[in-house]
Design a protein around this nucleic acid. Structure first.
Lengths: 246, 246
DNA sequence: CCAGAACCTTGATCCAGATCAACCGGGATT
DNA sequence: AATCCCGGTTGATCTGGATCAAGGTTCTGG
């Protein structure tokens, strides 16, 4: 799937569910969206947006993974969001970007020019409502993450992250949730560390420990098998059966 | 100011700026809001909402301080939000509460019955827009807090919290920001610890250290003077001049 | 095929903050 | 005015994760 193959795609043809806009849009609205839409690709490692930049688009991740990060002057960085396919980027009604957005893998974005999108939103209440819902979901995810960052041990943090990735992966895979799960880690050890408020060495050690204890199996560095999700959830110290990330 | 003195108050008479609804509402809308509004008081230490409860209202804090917290089965707790006067509580379009809300001091809430509020929102786009803006503000604050929790030292965490409280206090005090600031801590050492992902002993020690180093002055346990806010911001490791909490 | 660069793992040591414990001071209760 | 309780402080010690350091494994390009 390359950039040019998107040239003639319609919104409804995106290989992802456009959570922001497509679900309840009628034909007129889809056409209006189509007129202000374009695709853009980013290579792994490329910045998509710098904190403080003026953003002239909003959009959804079509494929690939991007991260939202904050950085202190001295270089300490904290990831504050993980963008997986179908996630929305940008904030209608806001001028500048608040965070750095970086493509972790090759990324395809479906973008809408911001001004016309806002105008469409103005006269289409259900889009505004959907956006509010999505923002509330993000807020829940952020607060869930505050618990992880503030109160969980390194091992629990790793287990929580694996659970989130496994769960998000499952929502994109037909068949739904089973106890056994297989997926590829979309992040380097360093990116995981930035997400979890740890060092990359600690991440590596804890992953090794989870492997030794049979909670996960590893093939290479990135390919993970979870023999029993319930075991992983227990390691994550998570009482909820996992509504996180919305 | 007691509960009965609110009986005849109109929305516009609240001693706080109703960030959600009042700013741009016309007379009709204010009247509609008035019809679905009531005041409610909570004593210090009382729960306002339990996580999972069905919420039948949304509203604003009029006076006092409340906290939003999450708790793990084993009792570890993390504060995920601090509600000061003018802050909004509740989520239009959502059934259950996601967090425990507890009154830290005596609290007066201005509540709107949820169903009619949602209906009003439905036909009043600018209220929906304001709500989206507020939710984005909360999201920014939550993410700012993720950086604090994940990457800052205990001393930086304390300084960050003091700066936030001082700043919020300033927005409610005529005169605006100066270098010198005086305020009362609305939280116990334990509540601060829950906010910061620390223990209460560490909070106590770091406050003593900041005092010894002249960054703050203390009168009793709660009354704080910051001789120079710039110094405090520096201790907080904060590059931004503090757009946090919205 | 080799060199270099990413990325990852593992070991040794250190230290910030947790934990355990004692104590203080003021306000409410009796 | 004795007691208790709650919130806070301070000291001693312990430890989980950071830091410093040394390889190992892939992958890419020459």
């Amino acid at each position: 799937m390359n950039a040019s193959s998107f040239a003639q795609l319609r919104c409804g043809d995106c290989p992802i569910r456009h959570r922001a806009v497509c679900a309840r849009c009628n034909a007129d609205e889809l056409e209006a969206l189509d007129a202000i839409k374009y695709y853009r690709t980013y290579e792994a490692g490329q910045p998509i947006i710098w904190s403080g930049d003026v953003m002239n688009f909003v959009g959804s991740v079509v494929s690939g993974i991007a991260t939202l990060t904050q950085t202190m002057e001295d270089g300490r960085t904290q990831m504050v969001g993980l963008l997986l396919p179908s996630d929305f980027v940008g904030r209608p009604g806001r001028e500048g970007a608040a965070y750095d957005v970086v493509a972790t893998t090759d990324v395809v974005m479906c973008c809408f020019r911001k001004k016309p999108f806002e105008e469409l939103m103005e006269r289409t209440p259900h889009i505004a409502h959907r956006l509010l819902e999505m923002t509330l979901d993000e807020l829940d995810a952020a607060r869930e993450w505050m618990l992880v960052l503030g109160r969980k041990t390194a091992r629990e943090k790793i287990a929580s992250l694996l659970a989130i990735i496994a769960r998000r992966d499952a929502t994109l895979t037909p068949g739904g949730a089973t106890n056994r799960m297989v997926f590829d880690l979309p992040l380097t050890r360093e990116a995981m560390a930035d997400y979890l408020g740890l060092t990359l060495e600690t991440v590596s050690r804890q992953i090794s420990a989870l492997k030794k204890d049979g909670v996960i199996e590893l093939e290479g560095k990135r390919h993970v098998t979870v023999p029993d999700m319930r075991l992983l959830m227990e390691e994550a110290g998570d009482d909820s059966d996992g509504g996180f990330l919305g």
